[in-house]
Design a binder for these strands. Structure first.
Length: 333
DNA sequence: AACATAGGCAACCGCCATATA
DNA sequence: CTATATGGCGGTTGCCTATGT
């Protein structure tokens, strides 16, 4: 009955991953592609649970992951998406392909939550000084409700559904406007976002890329230097180690360090398993993820792209956030 | 300089939906 | 159809580092 166990729990190693383990995992995935995690520990000899391997790959080793400080734009997007989607970090991360859900979640918990709390506190004091807090903004409502540990999942889901429906309504309104090509002209009254008259001027380079398509073909190829960095650290940390460095991984480090990302697709099952052959795999995995999990059935694909454009447009974003009816705390940033 | 505390982050845990035998 | 494993996700923990006393 059922499937065989992925790994025996006995002898499974826990805790931080060593560079050696990372390299073994990376080279294995480079050869076989991500997925089929159950076979990873047995084939690599890693004494890790398959789940742990998958997590390590998706959260740290996967090419294209951007680490370090979040930009102001990313921060705004997270705030906005969190207000819209709640703590659905994977869904939020799908809009920030360079960031992992874990990263976003951590950033939210360590930075943004405090920031919001601060703002809410100041807002509360403002409200107590004369404003009626019955009709609080949607942003605050959502934030507090999603964060509230007491709120049931059912409530949360209903709220999310309401939010999405409102966004959908707003999109329908926007699409009936004369110039649907210009997503920044959306007005989202139900969300408390004021009408926009801002032009869709250019955004940052990364944003521009994502504006056109949230999942550009080269998104993972764009920064695989974390693998190279890993190898560098590995070399630095264990200069005398005689661990057999997989050829593929070495080539990859050299390739990523030296060359710009390849834009060619590569033969999915080819012999040349370059690092960038992951692109097609990841891309194929991520694209439907967004549509299936987030707004599927609510927004058509055409509308979705407009929605995303709107979402990714920094200008409109600034406007939106500034117009979020935060009842006396408009100045968020 | 030594200790205490707080913050950040990687990794684990547990649940759920889905796949599979 | 049932039982069980897998993959995915969000919540939480615990270690490490930075900062304060």
């Amino acid at each position: 009955m059922g499937r065989p166990p992925c790994c025996d729990k006995i002898g499974v190693k826990k805790g931080p991953w060593t560079p050696e383990e990372d390299i073994i995992l990376v080279s294995y995935i480079q050869e076989h592609g991500p997925g089929n995690w159950r076979s990873v520990p047995t084939h690599t000899g890693l004494r890790r649970c398959s789940k742990s391997c998958r997590l390590r790959w998706t959260n740290y080793l996967r090419p294209g992951i951007k680490r370090g400080n979040f930009t102001e734009h990313e921060e705004k997007m997270i705030l906005h998406l969190q207000a819209l989607l709640g703590n659905r970090w994977a869904a939020i991360a799908s809009y920030l392909p360079e960031r992992t859900d874990n990263d976003i979640k951590n950033y939210w918990n360590t930075h943004l939550k405090k920031k919001l709390k601060k703002m809410n506190d100041s807002c509360d004091s403002t409200i107590n000084n004369g404003l009626d807090n019955k009709d609080f903004s949607i942003s605050n409502k959502n934030t507090t409700s999603h964060q509230s540990s007491n709120s049931s999942k059912g409530q949360w889901e209903r709220r999310l559904q309401t939010d999405i429906n409102m966004a959908k309504q707003a999109l329908c309104d926007a699409l009936s406007i004369d110039k649907p090509q210009n997503p920044t002209n959306f007005s989202i009254p139900d969300l408390g976002y004021g009408p926009s008259s801002s032009s869709s001027s250019t955004t940052t380079t990364t944003t521009t890329t994502r504006n056109t398509n949230p999942y550009p073909s080269g998104v993972y190829a764009s920064s695989a230097e974390n693998i190279a960095r890993l190898l560098q650290n590995f070399m630095k940390d264990t200069p005398k180690t005689s661990v057999l460095l997989p050829v593929a991984a070495t080539e990859m480090a050299i390739t990523t360090a030296a060359s710009s990302p390849s834009t060619t697709e590569g033969d999915g099952e080819g012999i040349d398993h370059s690092l960038f052959s992951f692109n097609s795999i990841d891309e194929a995995e991520e694209k439907p993820k967004l549509i299936d999990h987030d707004i599927n059935g609510l927004i058509t694909q055409g509308s979705l792209s407009l929605f995303e454009k709107w979402l990714f447009d920094e200008q409109s974003h600034d406007m939106i956030i500034n117009n979020m009816s935060l009842e006396g705390q408009e100045v968020l940033f």
